[in-house]
């Protein structure tokens, strides 16, 4: 999502931390193994960013394409 390396490093650390904490909490509640839950959460975050990222995401691209088609 970010356009600069420093932003990318900070954001990746943040996403990792959030997924780690949230995954551990969820795993504790549901009595599932902790590691896999964290991995699945982090994968979901990555897939969500591929879909929803501003400018580059798949949805943004589709939106831009339909906007272009509308003006033509």
């Amino acid at each position: 999502m970010p356009t600069r390396l420093s932003g990318m490093i900070a954001l990746s650390g943040l996403i990792g931390a959030v997924c780690g904490v949230a995954g551990a909490l969820v795993a504790g509640r549901t009595e599932l193994p902790t590691g896999p839950v964290i991995v699945l959460l982090a994968t979901a975050a990555a897939l969500a960013s591929i879909l929803l990222a501003p400018r580059r995401g798949i949805l943004a691209r589709l939106h831009r394409r339909s906007a272009l088609a509308g003006t033509a």
Partner: peptide
């Protein structure tokens, strides 16, 4: 999609599937 390179795309798919298996 052109948003992730081949190595990252491989690394995105298999840990998730392995995790599903472990669960």
């Amino acid at each position: 999609t052109g948003l992730v390179r081949a190595d990252a795309a491989i690394a995105l798919t298999f840990p998730a599937l392995f995790s599903l298996g472990v669960i």
